[in-house]
Design a protein around this nucleic acid. Structure first.
Length: 643
RNA sequence: GCCGAAGUAGCUCAGCUGGUAGAGCAACGGUUUCGUAAACCGUAGGUCGUGGGUUCAAGUCCCAUCUUCGGCUCCA
């Protein structure tokens, strides 16, 4: 008999060879009905597989990530089965489950897949799901696997099998479709009740742009039709928060073909928002001991040759600007650090004055690939809340921790709770991509991890994500549609100080090399604003709102009083406007609500006579009447910058 | 940059198999002076992204190009 430990710690005995499904049934009928997969000693498996050793198990249903994983993995196979039935001879790449659904990369040859095609496949999938074909697992030898896909004529699968070790290869079959797969899968296709193929995209085979581009079909499935409906509804709602849509509706920013793609134009309201964020950061930085500096938008080419940026990015960048004097070349600055290094070098530095912290809202230009441009999150001209800290080696960790505090302060003040702190390390298999000695990299990577740990920050380490000159701690935040963006970043750099030959005189009267920390809590103002818009769906906190209130006279007769109220508010730095259009009050309220103005002050005969305002709050409605003095007190308190 | 899709008035969108552009909102003019989410009447507004081509005739078909969207690759 086997001892099977359940998640609650209880131990039950089963004969050797018991299946996960049998265990589920022994617990309850309901669990057996909803069971999708099982975790056995930490490994997720099919419910139909036999267990032959003592084990701790957990049975996964739709409510567990492990259950969804199997569900969507099986859905990918169901998709493949349907696709093959409708498009014979199609070749398959990989088809994994993802956070929301699954995708499958396929080579359709010269056939195309459109909207009608997707619908036909959905229909076929539904038909095949109804049959409830079991997923059959089979161990195969490498030889058998190669023979099967050679006969089938699927070069991608052959490539995958060639990279696998004999003895670890399994096939799964449902209906007429057999795939190379390590599983796990659902008991049968019948669990899949609601199916939607979402979109078609191109994707390079094995993620390498030198390889052929396959067709990737994204889809999602659910155990119930209602859940699919809810998901699609959620997607629609998310689209309403898209910063590109809200940016246009709220008149925050715009693009112009004449100005150029990826070059945002900040409209007055967007500029007001951005300016408030800058003020907020300036204050926080002054408090943290930073010195503001200003540097030009272009720099001599040799500056970037020295920094290494020219060699790394030169050819993929905006090309050098020529001047009438032959031989002069300037680059639009893609980074502020080289300029700041030159500021550091204006005079000899003493160990006593370190750390030197130079801060600048530096606008930089990068020639991003055209297909990468995306609203404000990926642009070709943007402003970083950049700063470079020049410090002694013994100060690195402490300085790094102070920067973490600053970044977290920003995130807290703006209500970003769902961020991921990512330690971005070198790709150990491709060290050519980076500059600098191994031991300096190891040291920098260690210092970042230690600083994060000592701050109690939960981090995920990702290899291959470092900058070419040093490792980073990146703060990642998701947008409305679940795409992940890097906002704040902190980087330890031992390399640029070498390249720029930065020095300080130590207590020993010898020359020493400082360490640089690059950091930008927002990252870029553009991207930060984009994510902020989506985060609050355009309902900015009062201290940031471009227009904090609209003053709405009941009729033209009260326009003068409204203007009087506005000028008093302006004296207290409250941002607002008088809606003096010849419209009814209902209309003015509606327009103010739609434009997400935080407060509306309705003024008519009653208010004008008593120096009062009727206060209405966005999304909440009428709050009643206050004296103007009381309202000013209230709003100035509410609108304080969170510092 | 690559694969695929889309571009019609300021905005959101209609325009079937080619017959010569339409709605709502916004704008402008007038009437109305109004108490918590859209007053009424009228006017004007488009080389249908751009450039070629096919045709008696192109928003509609073909080619090229630009931009946008969804992914991929990239992201100092």
């Amino acid at each position: 008999m086997l001892k099977i430990t359940l998640p609650d710690g209880s131990v039950r005995e089963f004969p050797s060879g018991v299946t996960g499904m049998e265990i589920a049934k022994s617990i309850s009928e309901g669990l057996a009905r909803n069971a999708l997969s099982i975790e056995v000693n930490g490994e997720i498996r099919d419910l139909s597989r036999t267990i032959t050793t003592d084990a701790s198990i957990k049975i996964f249903t739709w409510n567990d990530a492990g259950g969804k994983y199997a569900f969507w993995h099986s859905s990918a196979h169901l998709f493949a089965e349907a696709l093959e039935a409708l498009y014979p001879g199609v070749k398959f790449g990989i088809g994994p489950p993802i956070d929301n659904g699954f995708y499958y990369d396929v080579d359709l040859g010269d056939r195309e897949l459109g909207e009608e095609g997707l619908q036909a496949i959905e229909k076929k999938m539904a038909e095949l799901a109804k049959v409830a074909s079991p997923f059959l697992r089979k161990d195969v030898t490498k030889q058998e696997a190669l023979e099967y896909f050679t006969a089938k004529g699927d070069p991608y699968k052959l490539e995958l099998i060639n990279d696998l070790q004999d003895g670890t290869i399994t096939f799964y079959q449902q209906g007429n479709f057999t795939d190379l797969c390590r599983g796990p899968h659902l008991p049968n296709t019948g669990f899949i009740k609601a199916i939607k193929l979402l979109n078609v995209a191109g994707a390079y085979w094995r993620g390498n742009e030198k390889n052929k581009m396959l067709t990737r079909i994204y889809g999602i499935t659910f155990p119930k039709a209602k859940e699919l409906e809810e998901y699609l509804h959620l997607l629609e709602e998310a689209k309403k928060r898209d910063h590109r849509k809200l940016g246009k509706e709220l008149e925050l920013f715009a693009f112009s073909e004449k100005v150029g793609m990826g070059l945002p134009l900040w409209l007055p309201k967007g500029a007001a928002l951005r300016e408030r964020l800058e003020q907020f950061m300036r204050r926080a930085q002054v408090k943290a001991g930073y010195d503001p500096v200003v540097t030009p938008h272009i720099g001599g080419k040799s500056l970037y040759v020295t920094s290494g940026h020219y060699e790394k990015y030169g050819k993929d960048s905006f090309q050098p600007i020529a001047t009438p004097d032959v031989g002069e070349e300037f680059l639009l600055k893609p980074m502020n650090c080289p300029h700041h290094c030159e500021i550091y070098k204006v005079r000899p530095r003493s160990y006593r004055e370190l750390p030197v912290r130079l801060a600048e809202f530096g606008t930089v230009y990068r020639y991003e690939q055209s297909g990468e441009l995306h609203g404000l999150t990926r642009v070709r001209g943007f402003t970083q809340d950049d700063a470079h800290i020049f410090c002694r080696p013994d100060q690195v960790k402490d300085e790094f921790k102070k920067v973490i505090d600053l970044v977290l302060h920003v995130f807290t003040a703006l209500g970003f709770e769902n961020y991921t702190a990512q330690v971005s390390l070198r790709d150990p298999n491709d060290k050519k991509k980076y500059i600098g000695a191994d031991e300096l990299w190891d040291r920098a990577e260690r210092e970042i991890q230690e600083a994060a740990d000592e701050k109690g920050l939960k981090t995920v380490a990702v290899q291959g994500e470092a900058a070419f000159y040093g490792p980073k701690l990146d703060f990642m935040v998701k947008d409305a549609l679940g795409r992940s963006w890097q906002l704040g970043t902190i980087q330890v750099d031992y390399n640029l100080p070498n390249r720029f030959e930065l020095e300080y005189i130590g207590a020993d009267n010898q020359r020493h090399r400082p360490v640089m920390i690059h950091r930008a809590p927002f990252g870029s103002l553009e991207r930060f604003v984009a994510v902020l818009i989506e985060h609050c769906a355009g309902n900015f906190p009062l201290w940031l709102a471009p227009e904090q209130l609209a003053i709405l006279p009941i009729s033209e007769k009260f326009n003068d009083y409204a203007r009087e109220v506005l000028s008093e508010l302006k004296l207290k730095d409250v941002r607002g406007f008088v809606d003096d259009r010849d419209e009814k009050i209902g209309r003015k309220i509606r327009d103010a609500e739609v434009s997400k103005t935080p407060y509306m002050l309705i003024v008519g005969e009653k208010e004008a006579g008593a120096k009062q305002v009727s206060v209405r709050k966005h999304g909440q409605g009428d709050l009643g009447t206050l004296s103007l003095g009381d309202f000013i007190e209230k709003i100035t308190a509410d609108a304080a910058m969170p510092i």
